[in-house]
Amino acid sequence: MSINTTNMKSRKLKSQIFYAIILICTLTTIAVLAALLISVFSKSIGWLNWNFLSSLPSRFPAKSGIKAGILGTLWVIGLTAIISFPLGIGAAIYLEEYSKKGWLKELIQINISNLAGVPSIIYGMLGLAVFVRQWGFGRSILSGALTMTILILPVLIVAAQEAIRSVPSSMRHGSYALGATQWQTITGVVLPYASSGILTGTILAIARAIGETAPMIMVGAAAFISFVPGGIMDSFTTIPLQIYSWTGKPQAEFQNVAAAGIVVLLAVLLLINSIAIILRNKYQDRVKS
């Protein structure tokens, strides 16, 4: 026999060692997440209170608060949602419903997937060069929101495309058979069917924007804002930016303030993601039935 089986023991040992390594690596991932959450939550204890939520920044850790950040984030993200929602869905409709296969669609599609790989700080530099300086919007909420829009648009378009693609073509044909135009078909049949899918994707894209810090630094959001913004041309700060500034401060107590800020940020993200998940489940139920 040219093939022996004397290597059986070592092969099986190898297989078992491999499993052990795989298992350890996977458990490491879980342990790291636990360590991260414990580190943040334990430091935030005693610092996360009503005072923290309702105060403006301060030189003193005990008096520091995240109110300006929360409101700034609300303004920027709200405006981002208002601008990016129609743009993203519109672009997705064009790509899925109107454009024919060809170089134009290909170009746009390659562009979108390429943009998803561009670091967020580069979007910040674009915002700085175009919105802040060239268009003269300055270090305003508007500049921040426009930058965020450009940043999340690729993700948003892809999510909306997927939702639109899931609409069975039989539904479109049904509408055309009644003599509807393409736009009537889209607004009457396609969008209603795809709406919760689109909404879920949009919400997740926006959740990503909430955590973004680097682009906001680039467009000049200030970490230390001692007033509450009142309009889209006001200067602003955001929750992650405040966390950044607190974490970087030399006094150790500010790390606790930062931890409290992180808990707030994670809570906001959790809330938004839960909404998206609930919507997604509803959507799946309907597709099944």
């Binding site: 040219s2 093939i3 022996n4 089986t5 290597n7 092969r11």
Partner: peptide, 16 residues
Amino acid sequence: GPKIHGAKDKKVLDAI
């Protein structure tokens, strides 16, 4: 198959 079961020699493998 022969490789996982321990055959290494190129000539042997060619023959197999």
